[in-house]
Design a protein around this nucleic acid. Structure first.
Lengths: 189, 189
DNA sequence: GCTATATATATCGTTCCGATATATCGAGCC
DNA sequence: GGCTCGATATATCGGAACGATATATATAGC
């Protein structure tokens, strides 16, 4: 997850850890606070695995600035992570992070992610409803209120997703040309 | 957090880890999935610190069932944790867990927690609004949509909290007598 | 007696997090 | 020049969480 966020931000432009953290809280702001204790080790892992590389390494002590740049293999990792076929839905931030990088994805991929998220939320909604009818009497008012609120929020989230999907489809329909070209050749620039 | 949830459930009735996990996902259901990799180590810690004790220890191999019971010092820990004076608001589940054990708390404590949560969310709301006006042009549509949705959800959450606070105050006004009694005797059945 | 499934505990490796230590840099001030 | 302050920047520690997996027993259905 952090990996994905880092790679996404570095795609935009190379920078060092400190800036990364600032951009991170700029983008995901109140929803996700990343600490240095997560960030720097994550950068090390990515570097170890060849997904990012240091552009201007600190020669020795003093003048320590490590500017990180995403490598080709890092770009590939980004694409893999963003598709996320596992139990990625549990993690509330996972979807938010992906959304923050939607602009890098192909329209079909975008719609796919939105649909999968919607399916997950529909599942959750059904789950909550089952609970509400099944232990109506067995739980206290507070837990009940919590669940009802959870139900409302989930419904609201689903509506939001549906709007996103709708406008995504509209955008796809509006400029339907450029058939083969885009999907085949990948990114230029 | 996990600690708090465990203690709260054990207050209700003693049980072993497996049941604990089931009750946990019964109560917090779709919002929080606790794994054994978190649960058993947490139980060990609580036992080590004398907050819970094993009632029926497995004598030897086979017949392995550890029934956990909360101790007096565990009850005290529960009370401390539930008040949570640190950076507890970041953790979305923290508040949910506390709510699930609201019935154990005194009305003032309840209202206090609700107010603090509300204050946190108001802060967050203001934060999001600032962001929305400040980088209106600098972020893409998706991030913008995410933030607007976050704003709506936060507002919705605040309204929910306000309702809770209102009915909590009403309840407190309705039966202002019965001072000591209730808080002492705890739940039967 | 066989085979699932539910009950029950434990542990491994990886990641995450909060706190903290440390060093550099630029700006403002006297 | 010398001083402090706040922003920039990296590193690391211990503890906690997570997902996966291994293992064993008990129960139920056939």
């Amino acid at each position: 997850m952090l990996e994905l966020a880092i790679l996404g931000l570095l795609k935009e432009s190379s920078m060092h850890g400190y800036q990364l953290k600032k951009r991170l809280s700029e983008t995901l702001g109140p929803f996700w606070q990343v600490s240095y204790g997560s960030l720097y080790p994550a950068l090390k892992r990515l570097q170890r695995d060849g997904s990012v590389e240091v552009v201007f390494p600190r020669e020795d002590v003093g003048r320590r600035k490590n500017v990180y740049r995403v490598t080709e293999s890092g770009e590939r990792l980004f694409s893999e992570l963003v598709e996320a076929s596992g139990h990625e839905n549990q993690d509330e931030n996972g979807f938010r992070v992906r959304l923050a990088f939607f602009r890098y994805l192909k329209p079909e991929t975008r719609i796919g992610l939105l649909e999968r998220r919607k399916a997950y939320l529909l599942n959750r909604l059904a789950d909550i409803k089952t609970r509400l009818t099944s232990y109506r009497e067995r739980v206290d008012t507070y837990t009940l209120s919590l669940m009802r609120h959870g139900m409302d929020s989930t419904e609201h989230d689903i509506q939001w997703l549906e709007n996103m999907i709708r406008s995504e489809r509209q955008a796809a329909r509006r400029k339907p040309k450029r058939r083969t070209a885009v999907s085949k050749e990948g990114g230029h620039t």
